[in-house]
Computed example of a mutant assay.
Amino acid sequence: MFLAWNEMRRNKIKFGLIIGVLIMISYLLFLLSGLANGLMNMNREAIDIWKADAIVLNKDANQTVAQSSVNTDDINGKFDKSEGLKQTAVIATDGKLKENATVFGIDAKGFLMPKLEDGKLFKKNNEVVADHTLKTKGFKIGDELSLSNSDEKLKIVGFSESSKFNASPVLFTNDETISKLNPMFKGDKINALVVKDKNWKDAQLNKDLEVIEIEDFVTKLPGYQAQNLTLTFMIVFLFAISAMVIGIFLYIITLQKRNLFGVLKAQGLTNGFLAKSVMSQTIIIALIGTLIGFGLTVLTGAFLPEAVPIKFDYLTMSIYGIVLILVAILGSLFSVLSIRKVEPLKVIG
């Protein structure tokens, strides 16, 4: 460690360049991690609030709530705890602002309703609680919303915690209001039944219905898997690139020091000692680069606007940081192997 650190102090520019590259790689890696987490969160925020075990949908709906239709008579009493969900899509405007939104018809005091952040719960028809996303976009309590596909007007009476569904902000209202917006909800029709029951698999349902575990339902949301896989592959490629970059840099530096290694070997220093020196340098470089990259990412997150779908999971970021250091060490193995091939008599001449 002493030899490795002193060499880095004497060659600040050379090792500073390697650290700089690692800072940029780790910075991009952590930002991608936050972006991936944020995009996944946009799709599933409202679902996570339910803390549900399963959801009942029509088998022909391809696991899509909006395309599902369920008769309440077919599911009443089948589960310990459950709530019906009605969903429809709208384009809402207050006269100045316009936003695509999803309307949920739910029980205001049920488990499908997120925590209230501001205002009050809906009590009358045509009152809605909007999720926090709409508040950040300029909508206010008291706004009357006109809809593109209905003559009904909706009044915002409160804002809930952020609870987007499939990347769309949600308006929460009662069954009567959503029935006005979508005629299919007349009578005992709902889109889905959200279930809180650990024994949901034991329920005997109509052959036209299916019960889906909530995590399976989330992964089938439109675009969810595609976004997740794309960003995951980008992160994997970044790990591979970082290993190559560190490996190439250290290999070139090792080649430049062949004469030095030859002299050190002639003085009795072993391959193991020199290999430990290179590995120590790699650990120091990777640790400094990763920590600075981590710090820059957290600093950047503090200044990003709320419109940017980014959410940092510090546990995941810590794991990525550790993996990045291990990958850098792996990349330095080429240098370690080249040290073993240095012959003092040939190098010194």
Rank of each mutant, 00 (worst) to 15 (best):
Y320Q: 14
E99P: 00
F172S: 01
N228I: 04
Q204W: 01
K140H: 12
G158F: 03
L315I: 15
N166P: 00
I13P: 00
V211C: 04
K14C: 01
I322E: 05
K123V: 11
Q63G: 02
K198I: 11
L134P: 03
K164M: 12
F2A: 09
L324K: 04
F261V: 04
L134S: 05
K14W: 04
G110A: 03
G349F: 10
L269Q: 11
A203I: 02
L145T: 10
F237S: 07
K257S: 01
L29D: 05
P309E: 05
V21A: 15
D202Y: 06
N76A: 13
L287H: 08
L264M: 14
F30H: 14
R10H: 11
S82M: 12
I18K: 11
F139K: 02
L121T: 10
A61K: 00
K98E: 11
A52D: 09
T93Q: 04
K198E: 15
S68C: 00
K81E: 13
W5E: 01
K198A: 15
K135C: 03
Q204L: 11
I284F: 14
R258G: 02
N199V: 06
I248A: 06
K140F: 07
I348V: 08
N191A: 03
I310D: 01
G95W: 08
N166C: 03
I178H: 05
I248Q: 08
L145A: 05
K120H: 12
K86Q: 08
N126P: 07
A130G: 07
F303K: 12
D107T: 07
W200G: 02
V278E: 02
A302L: 09
D80H: 10
F217Y: 13
G272N: 10
S26A: 15
I253F: 05
F237N: 01
D48M: 13
F15V: 09
G20L: 05
S163Q: 09
G295Y: 06
R9L: 14
K96S: 11
L255N: 13
L22W: 04
L181R: 00
I248C: 00
E161A: 08
L116T: 06
V170W: 03
K207Y: 01
I339H: 02
V298Y: 11
G289D: 05
E7T: 13
K186R: 08
L147P: 06
Y320G: 01
L134F: 05
K311S: 15
I156W: 04
E45V: 06
K81F: 10
L315N: 14
F312D: 05
Q267P: 02
H132V: 14
R340C: 01
V263Q: 12
V342H: 00
N271P: 05
F233A: 14
D118Y: 11
G272E: 08
E144G: 09
I18E: 12
P169I: 02
V103W: 01
V211F: 00
N166R: 00
K12P: 07
I47C: 11
E152K: 15
S338K: 15
L39F: 10
K51R: 15
T102D: 02
E210Y: 05
I285M: 11
